[in-house]
Write a protein that binds this DNA or RNA. Structure first.
Lengths: 202, 202
DNA sequence: GTCTATACGTCGATAGAC
DNA sequence: GTCTATCGACGTATAGAC
């Protein structure tokens, strides 16, 4: 079964439709990156993209699916940049990914609102997004933890899955605290976690 | 300057108005606890409370202020229960507080949506709530960390403020992951953090 | 297939009657 | 102090032009 998240909903959508969808998505991302998280209604986005709001639902099904697509696409760059080397620590990986996401105005706000929606009932697109993201990240980070445990860079008496969940939670939560209050010790707290995970933590 | 969050906005609101506001708030909390986070529109709450939605804005100013009031009141019990003894660890304190909050259907969802709103512009009530909560919690936990460092229950080579921020972030983030996927190692990750903070962590 | 036009029901907020 | 009435904006759904 191939991934279906890149296709419009209808069966008969081929190259043209996909291309047009991508075109609209690219434009939406520009608009979004240009002025942040506010004014993210279907109608406002449509106005700036240059189509009617009905066209957006045609390609994306719902506002929430469009927002998910915008987030995935906007954060793609930062994600792939770091996933390659198994050398960087889990904490460093989340720090780097957070740094690049913060470059895009409104992206962290968008992420936060998608996660909040995911917790409510009847928001299937947001829930699927958030569930998949956390599952993928936990798996990825846990594997990275195991690698670094074997290399003696992370203490080997800790559960890799628990470390993964903890690092993700810390990264997300500290980002939020920092956005609300720039004096929150985001960096210090992450550095602390990194140190605590070292084999012979001083 | 006395706290003003318990007063209606208008100058001329005395005992009667305050009592009525509290009455409505109590009812709103019941309604909320009864059926969770959905149907939290001003109009739906008003319908169940037995007033018009305009009456709610009269007493609370806006939907967001009402939701903040509902959250503060609903989580008050769990909060005061644990704040007393300086004996429980910061992690235990967050665990306990999370446990009691989880008893109220929709309360965690409400919290998450308030925090998400706080990150957006033009949501002053949510932002004030979230900023104040994080500031208060960080201060409270940091002081607790220092106490326990003196007692030799937390390693003394870590910054108390950073620990506080980290514990809050971990607690919030793990709660979210757990709500989306009950197999997420919420408890294990918090226990891990607790262990890492011990002086002679095994 | 694509997209516009249009309509529906709901929303938060507010003005003014009483 | 609380209501009714109304406003503009919202997301979604559908009919039909092209």
């Amino acid at each position: 079964m191939p991934a279906d998240e890149e296709r419009p909903r209808q069966r008969g959508s081929y190259a043209k439709g996909i291309a047009r969808r991508q075109e609209i998505l690219d434009r939406a991302i520009e608009v979004f990156a240009g002025r942040g998280a506010d004014r993210t209604s279907l109608r406002a986005i449509a106005r700036e993209v240059g189509v009617t709001h009905a066209a957006l639902t045609h390609y994306f099904g719902s506002l929430e699916e469009l927002l998910v697509a915008v987030y995935e696409e906007s954060s793609k760059a930062g994600r792939s940049r770091v996933e390659s080397s198994q050398d960087v620590s889990p904490v460093e990986m989340m720090i780097e990914s957070a740094r690049t996401n913060r470059q895009v105005p409104g992206l962290v706000q968008l992420y936060s609102s998608l996660v909040a929606s995911a917790l409510e009932e009847d928001h299937p697109a947001a829930r699927a997004f958030a569930t998949a993201r956390f599952a993928r990240l936990r798996e990825q980070l846990a594997s990275r933890v195991r690698t670094q445990q074997r290399a003696g860079r992370i203490r080997d008496d800790v559960d890799a899955e628990a470390v993964a969940a903890l690092v993700i939670a810390a990264s997300d939560g500290l980002q939020t605290q920092w956005l609300l209050d720039a004096s929150a010790p985001q960096h210090e707290a992450l550095a602390l976690l990194e140190n605590l995970l070292r084999p012979t933590a001083a």
